[in-house]
């Protein structure tokens, strides 16, 4: 019982660690790393489901009767490469944010936005 669901529980723990980093940390790069951990936990979930006891890698060969399920492998293989491409897109947004705000901390960016909003409101009132 305990061992049977161990992989699923680890997946939940990793997923929650990723979610926690995304919610609780203000640094944008740290947030992206949190997303990566979340993503990897989903990969581990799929690949664990594909495993069959006594099975081998799904490459056909003589004398083997039990193969692990190839379908989750296909889905995750492409997801990994798509994942790095989208992470790169996120990282390039971080680079642009750093250039315009000179900071990648969420609180400081919010602060700068608020200040700007206040000063434009004041200018409008004066006008």
């Amino acid at each position: 019982m305990l061992i049977g669901l161990f992989n699923d529980w680890i997946v939940v723990v990793l997923m929650m660690i990723g979610l926690y980093i995304v919610i609780a940390h203000g640094n944008l790069i740290k947030k992206l790393i949190g997303l990566t951990i979340f993503q990897t936990s989903v990969f581990i979930f799929y690949i664990s489901m594909a495993k069959i006891d006594g099975g081998t890698a799904p490459i056909l060969a003589d004398g083997i009767t039990q193969y692990s399920n190839p379908l989750p492998h296909v889905l995750i293989l492409t997801a990994i490469v798509v994942g790095i491409a989208t992470t790169a897109l996120g990282l390039s947004l971080v680079v642009r944010i750093k250039e315009s705000y000179n900071s990648i901390e969420e609180e400081e960016i919010q602060q700068q936005d608020n200040d700007e909003q206040l000063s434009t409101n004041k200018a409008e009132e004066n006008a």
Binding site: I29, L32, I33, T36, T40, F43, I47, S48, A50, K51, G55, T56, A57, P58, I59, S68, P72, H73, I76, L77, I80, V81, G83, I84, T87, A88, L91, V94, V95
Partner: peptide
Amino acid sequence: MDAVDVAFTEAAVGAGISTLLMLVVI
């Protein structure tokens, strides 16, 4: 877990390219 193709991709992407990109960004 017998997912050799996936392991191949993850080793090249997770340990290689993604680490590199993040290093350039920091």
